[in-house]
């Protein structure tokens, strides 16, 4: 636990002492703020059966910004240590591979959650200016946020895996982007006219984060989706562990 906390602190330190953290935070908040304002304008002009939370988290703009976040956050984690050789110092210190992996993953996950918090503030601020009951439903917001946290865990785990597969940050980012995109677009399979609608495409839809987010941002807590994210994240981290251990046995 001690080594885990020391590593976690170091990861956070190097993330927040780099300009990357603050430019990401600024850019992501700006894009989402813009989206939020435009959605409020739309809501002012025409009545909709959808809630603001639903239309925000279902918006393609939000997802574009979100999906590019994952590779940028994770590309550095192992690729950089491998390129500079510091991984040797890391793994010859008396720490286990699990500690290193979990510390890096948790650090990046917490950073991600921090990047998301301004979105919560948008909704809470809006509530301040609206009469009681007319504002955003709190439970719906929490459920959507929980969804984002879980989807983030899986995508960040995929990004971390990509980063431990290569020495180059850029390659890690590209691979992570492919993983993340693939996972997201599975849900749109049935919308592409080239793929005929079948039981296959509807099965794949169940794997897609877009599909789960639809339910969660409507305030429906589906335990199947939650279990799916938790177990899939654990699986990817498990694979990552073995990728890291494989360096010992490469022959």
């Amino acid at each position: 636990m001690r080594a885990f906390l020391v590593l976690l602190k170091k990861e956070w330190r190097s993330f927040f002492l780099s300009p990357l953290a603050f430019s990401l935070l600024a850019l992501f908040t700006f894009l989402n703020g813009w989206l939020f304002v435009s959605l409020i304008n739309v809501a002012r002009l025409q009545a909709s059966s959808r809630s603001l939370v639903y239309s925000f988290f279902e918006s393609g703009w939000f997802w574009m910004a979100l999906l590019t976040l994952f590779p940028v956050l994770t590309m550095r984690l192992f690729a950089d240590e491998k390129r500079t050789g510091t991984i040797e110092g890391l793994f010859t210190a008396p720490v286990t591979t699990t500690q290193v992996l979990l510390a890096k993953f948790t650090a990046v996950w917490l950073s991600y959650i921090l990047l998301l918090t301004p979105i919560l503030l948008f909704f809470l601020l809006l509530n301040l200016f609206l009469p009681v009951g007319a504002g955003v439903h709190f439970g719906e917001l929490c459920s959507a946020f929980l969804g984002l946290v879980l989807i983030g865990a899986l995508n960040l785990a995929l990004g971390t895996l990509a980063s431990s597969l290569t020495n180059h940050q850029m390659i890690a980012a590209m691979v992570a982007f492919v993983f993340v995109m693939l996972h997201y677009f599975l849900g749109f399979m049935h919308q592409f006219s080239v793929v005929p609608d079948s039981s296959w495409t509807s099965a794949l839809t169940h794997f897609s984060s877009s599909e789960h987010m639809k339910q969660l941002s409507a305030g429906l807590l589906d335990t199947r989706a939650m279990l799916y994210y938790i177990s899939f994240t654990a699986l990817v981290l498990f694979l990552n562990f073995h990728v890291l251990e494989a360096r010992k046995w490469r022959a």
């Binding site: 001690r2 080594a3 020391v6 590593l7 170091k10 330190r13 190097s14 002492l17 780099s18 500079t84 050789g85 510091t86 991984i87 040797e88 110092g89 010859t92 210190a93 008396p94 720490v95």
Partner: peptide, 26 residues
Amino acid sequence: YMPENVPLYPDMRVTEYLEFRGRLKG
């Protein structure tokens, strides 16, 4: 252990680095 070519984190101060390593090593 001191690895070949002494890989270090360039974005840390000497004291920060040694503190990190010392704490990491228990």
